[in-house]
Design a protein around this nucleic acid. Structure first.
Lengths: 224, 224
DNA sequence: TCATCAATGATAGTAATACTATCACAAATA
DNA sequence: TATTTGTGATAGTATTACTATCATTGATGA
């Protein structure tokens, strides 16, 4: 995988494309580290500025506020998972196998080779698991949705729903299941770590094998 | 249903029991209204104080901060749904029917008779749908979990998982499915309203029939 | 009936957050 | 060489999320 790949995102997510400058890439790289460290609530542009030895004002030239920065990062993740699915299923003809690969991508996205050096996908996955749903659980959803800020997620769900319908054309809820596989994946990785009573799976040695097995079990019962 | 019912919650959730005083009940009643109106992010104790013609200081005598207030309200909801399930399944012997009633409780909890006059369960459900997951998606989960702040949710999941295992003792993931039914219910009501591309269901005339049907379809495929 | 005590209100103050504005400077570009 | 672009430095503001202190009122109890 070369460094040539540039994931392109909705222009409304940023004021200035962070991928185009040293400072921009540093903002991306280090915001991922700091959001993971502090959580999105306690993360501030001031902390980030201090960390990268820049200033708040400079960061505000790239992103309107931290919510849009998070949305940018989460969109990046959605695009990236979509990309992984594309390349990993390109030569696969069997739909059931495709769906298995999709599930593997949801669960183990973080263990793929990095695409660009300024995004640590492994940490980014942790952010998506912990804070991803906060991007759309706001009073601004409808407004932001109309600007296309959730397009990447919808694309991902569309891709997966197609495979679901290939596996079983009679299954009535392909979109619902597609969304649910992604959310279940994230939720139960989180629950295994923090609220184990809410799940049956556990995380052994940082591997999400059990979550993957669980999702395949659900898919089998629902579609086969 | 009489007004005698008092839902009892973990004492760590509040500084002073809001159910025991006029002001406390007013805080509960009006915080539900204002959180729904502004969303948890823009909701402040100052706004609430102005709304109920009290002061910030007085509200802080009941709750440490708005996060704990939200946690209180969400716990109230979890307890309430658990209570609904208990009374609505009390004379039911068939497990499949029990599970249908559970699903109906998740989806239509808001349409049951109110238990106490200071909690509008219908609006509270909207809050749980929009902001409920923010109670545990924080850096404080482990700490708060150790204080028992998620006990009500775990109880609810335990109740449901037992019924799932009654329906099909061989199903491997009863806790996962129990959690997922609750989360799916909330998520897809939300998606139907704000991000319809992520779901197959729609909300017609404020009724969640389609979500209920969808959940029953999933349960059937998974357990029958 | 008086003392006191708990609950609430009124007011003030502080540190941090989430910005916005202005000016200076250096490097790239035309 | 002139100009534009990107970044840094600094300052300032409104709001948030509290904390502290004191006054008032109404109920309790001796």
């Amino acid at each position: 995988m070369s460094a040539e790949i540039k994931i392109s995102l909705n222009k409304g997510l940023y004021l200035k494309d962070p991928q185009d400058s040293e400072l921009g890439r540093s903002i991306i790289k280090n915001s991922i580290i700091l959001i993971d460290e502090f959580g999105i609530e306690s993360f501030t542009f001031k902390k980030l500025a201090a960390h990268i030895k820049s200033t708040e004002a400079s960061i505000y030239r790239y992103f309107v506020n931290k919510h849009l920065l998070l949305l940018y990062l989460v969109n990046w993740y959605w695009e990236w998972v979509n990309f992984l699915i594309s390349i990993n299923t390109i030569n696969i003809t069997d739909s059931k196998t495709k769906l298995q690969i999709i599930i593997h991508s949801f669960v183990s996205a973080s263990q793929e080779n990095p695409v660009v050096d300024y995004v640590n996908e492994s940490i980014l996955q942790k952010i998506v698991i912990s804070d991803g749903m906060k991007t759309y659980h706001t009073k601004e959803v409808d407004n932001e949705n109309s600007k296309g800020f959730f397009k990447s997620y919808k694309n991902l769900v569309l891709t997966v729903s197609k495979v679901i319908s290939e596996v079983n054309p009679n299954f009535k809820y392909p979109y619902t299941l597609a969304t649910n596989l992604f959310e279940m994946s994230n939720n139960h990785i989180f629950f295994a770590q923090h609220l184990p009573r809410l799940t049956d799976v556990s995380i052994v040695e940082n591997e999400n094998n059990e979550v993957e097995k669980m999702l395949n079990y659900f898919v089998e019962k629902l579609l086969y």
